[in-house]
Amino acid sequence: MVVVTAKQLDEIVHMLAGRRRVLLLGCNTCAAVALAGGDREVETMIQALQLAISRRGMTVEFVGGVLQRQCEPEYVEAMDAEDIDAILSLGCGAGVAMLAAQTGIPVYPALDTLFIGAAQGLGSWRAECSACGSCVLGETAGICPVTRCAKGILNGPCGGVNDGECELGDRPCAWVEIHERLESQGRGASFAHENPPKDDSAGEMYQWDLSAKGGSR
């Protein structure tokens, strides 16, 4: 799923300066599961913003709501945004974009969109995919070197690996993990396959605005 996290309150307050009536809109799919965009987070953020705004001597009225998915037009069309002069989205970047395109009123992000991840435990996710448009997971034993290697190396570990840890000290070395898993599956020989440079134009085979891949970046 898309993993998100709340922005600092100060940054949000700054964005909302001068607004009269703001809709805080959660998203009940990824953002809710990420504990950043569900009912409870909308309520909590309204309270926190009211406090922060009143401390600054400002007046903004907040109303709350949650869409099932901000990134789908039918949910956005069914939404009631009457007498709202801005939306604060508790969804991912795609949700913000859809809201902004559909409603015509200013939309601000309350969250930062981090990565596509898999759950590691309660409230914990690990980045597993960078949506690069040309998947190599079949030859890397299901561990993405584009995402899990800090340098996105496609051909084996760099010299910075330290007892199986990345030189940045924040993760295991993806290539040590890939090597181990390939060996354990009897696929050690495929490590020797030389991966060519990534085709960064991979998404272009689709119409960029209709693309499942996203087009040129």
């Binding site: 800090a150 340098k151 996105g152 190396i153 496609l154 051909n155 084996g156 760099c158 910075g160 030189e167 940045l168 030389e194 991966n195 060519p196 440079p197 990534k198 960064d200």
Partner: peptide
């Protein structure tokens, strides 16, 4: 060389390119 990551250097906010790596 692939090169040390930008995060260990003195411009740690920079975009790390790594369009290619050492073998490539």
């Amino acid at each position: 060389l692939t090169g040390d990551h930008v995060r260990v250097g003195d411009h740690r906010e920079a975009k790390a390119v790594f369009d290619l790596e050492s073998v490539q």
